[in-house]
Write a protein that binds this DNA or RNA. Structure first.
Lengths: 130, 130
DNA sequence: AATATAGGCAACCAAATGGTTGCATGTCAA
DNA sequence: TTGACATGCAACCATTTGGTTGCCTATATT
């Protein structure tokens, strides 16, 4: 599991996951066109992702096709979201998304604050009085 | 969001989140007892987590209490799990957990393979024929 | 008031990370 | 078969990271 988090830590690798999420089965060369670095660097990133089991690959002739594997992400989710929080968080997230979409009625922005006191018994976090 | 992933990349920081998940509102000193490093090092980790918005803090006299904030984790989840995969993944995960619990019937281990071909159009990933 | 407790800040250091260049190998197409 | 294409592997380098030590401040306790 450590490798999964390490893999997700880099923005280029996350971009690779995003690319595969919207377009499955791409080759190395294809992915390279979206990243501003050498092919070799991208290879390193892809290897890391593959070792972390975040992507699976299939060889097709001389082409290596890459696929996103969502399972590890789901396991991260399970680790720190207790079952009871899930519904609330999902509702929150859906609401946020709803508020973000350009709604037909041109109201003032609702200032969708997505977090603040999401789960804390003592209300708003308080600044250090030093 | 970058800070969130960076924060999650380190095992010590993940352990801190685990500690706060099972016991909310701990002080720095309290958390230190579970990690094999100096207090200053733990402080650095906690600051990173706080900047990433993964924990919120409340000062209480000279004690700084730490709380887990699950929202960013949920956002990670939303990023790469398309809505249609969620049900299937949840079922898979539940099944895995079920198989892992010491069942009353002393069967042979079911060898709960949790991932393999979880979402790939081309079936089992294939090894490089080179 | 004196002392112990809870925490912050800065300088320093070894190791890991993310990129590069250079070269080698296997596959397809003319 | 020759050359272009798709990818792999290794050495190297600058920066970031994760830890240390040393010292300072603020709040409790006696």
């Amino acid at each position: 599991m450590d490798e999964v988090f390490k893999a997700l830590a880099d923005p280029s690798r996350r971009k690779l996951l995003d690319l595969l999420h919207e377009n499955s089965g791409q080759t190395l060369a294809s992915l390279c066109t979206h990243l501003d670095m050498t092919r070799q660097a991208v290879t390193k990133h892809l290897n890391l992702l593959e070792n972390a089991n975040l992507i699976a690959t299939v060889w097709h002739g001389r082409e290596k096709l890459h696929y996103l594997n969502p399972v590890p992400i789901h396991e991260i989710y399970e680790r720190w979201i207790s079952k009871y929080e899930r519904h609330r968080l999902q509702a929150l997230s859906d609401l946020k998304k709803h508020l973000e979409t350009p709604s037909p009625e041109p109201h003032g922005k609702h200032e969708a604050r997505q977090q603040s006191s999401a789960s804390h018994p003592s209300g708003e976090p308080v600044e250090h009085p030093h």
